[in-house]
Design a protein around this nucleic acid. Structure first.
Length: 352
DNA sequence: AACTCGTGGGT
DNA sequence: TACCCAAGAGT
């Protein structure tokens, strides 16, 4: 095996030649680095890039983000998923504005205390923005290191996390930790890819243990397997000529603090009549005509499959419900952050 | 420490 | 199709 210094040099050169040009690589401002790192958590660059640009456009500095409303921040985050990131981002912005006078903290211990900033993000910000020697360990780094050294300890085990963090720290180039960390991740993302990496043209194809032992497709090892839960949402669209009703999801559940049509959740695909009984919670069915029911569709989440359909009831006589329904003019619906199934329905209806 | 939180792309 | 995975964090 080549020594660590040689590996670092090879990686460094590879990065200089192959790195992608991205907006957050044009700056070391910790606000922009932080924003990009939170957006990119569990998210591909292709998916997050436009969100980054919209956020720095809407909130050019941390104070402006802190002064925004959570509803507005969530609206800008709509479609990106893992909405706790947006809520925590906003919360942390307020912390920085109020406790640090709007100046982004520069040491690891302060940064990692911010909501939504864990070990990975704290290491990324401190190394890239402040040139501090903290090694990042993300999915790319796990994959690259496990293959390079032929390590089959599960990356999602306690021992595995500890070992990979130690190895990443050993490999870290303390003279340029920011460049090194980004090189590790970029290499994992572009060269040492999850499926079918091009090992023939890899700069480490003579040092990589996994390639030598023909174990590329077996590394890294993951032990955890998630169990999928099925849920059934009957969305009730109550409409008048120019309005409808929305609710805010305030429980500790998926899509927390996003808006949606009032929903009747059932154990399975229930008969319409059964659901209609529940609708009396919202309004009186007898005053509604023209019932329109969509087919079932499915939204796949990490741990859940949400089966959903829309039951549209056109009201001839307005009867506001009893359960915190928000009466919304159709022309104002675009202001609300909504989950993907609702967004698609709104688009189909031509309301957004 | 296991579980939960979205969405989209690739095979 | 069904599965994997993606610049992880909070509880």
């Amino acid at each position: 095996m080549a020594d660590i210094e040689e590996i670092k040099g090879t990686l460094h050169s590879w990065y200089i030649q192959n790195k992608r040009h991205l907006p957050w690589r044009e700056t070391t401002d910790p606000y922009f680095i932080w924003l990009s790192e939170v957006i990119l958590q569990q998210t591909r660059i292709d998916q997050g890039l436009s969100y980054f640009n919209r956020f720095i456009d809407a909130y050019p500095n941390v104070k402006l983000l802190a002064d925004a409303s959570e509803d507005d921040v969530l609206k800008l985050w709509q479609g990106l998923g893992y909405y706790s990131r947006a809520r925590n981002l906003h919360h942390a912005a307020k912390t920085i504005a109020h406790e640090f006078e709007g100046i982004f903290p520069s040491d690891y211990k302060c940064i990692i205390k911010l909501k939504g900033v864990g070990e990975y993000t704290a290491a990324a910000i401190t190394s890239i923005s402040f040139n501090l020697p903290y090694a990042v360990v993300d999915g790319n780094v796990y994959r690259f290191i496990s293959r390079l050294f032929g390590i089959d300890i599960p990356i999602d085990s306690t021992n595995g996390k500890k070992l990979f963090k130690e190895l990443a720290s050993e490999m870290l180039d303390k003279k340029d930790p920011g460049l090194h960390n980004q090189a590790m991740m970029e290499f994992g993302a572009l060269q040492c890819t999850p499926q079918k990496p091009n090992c023939q043209e890899c700069v480490f194809n003579e040092t990589c243990m996994a390639l030598k032992e023909n174990k590329i497709d077996k590394l890294p090892v993951k032990q955890g397997k998630i169990k999928i839960k099925h849920r059934y949402f009957n969305y009730i669209i109550l409409t008048g000529k120019n309005h409808t009703y929305l609710q805010k999801r305030t429980k500790n559940d998926i899509w927390r603090n996003l808006f949606e049509f009032p929903v009747v959740e059932t154990e399975q695909k229930t008969e319409i009549d059964q659901v209609l009984k529940e609708i009396d919670r919202f309004t009186e069915v007898t005053n509604n005509t023209e019932l329109e029911v969509s087919t079932w569709q499915k939204q796949v989440l990490s741990h859940q499959h949400i089966h959903y359909r829309f039951i549209q009831l056109k009201q001839t006589e307005e009867k506001p419900g009893t359960e915190n329904l928000i009466r919304v003019d159709k022309k104002d619906i675009f202001k609300f952050a909504v989950p993907k199934p609702v967004e698609q329905k709104l688009t189909q209806l031509g309301w957004v």
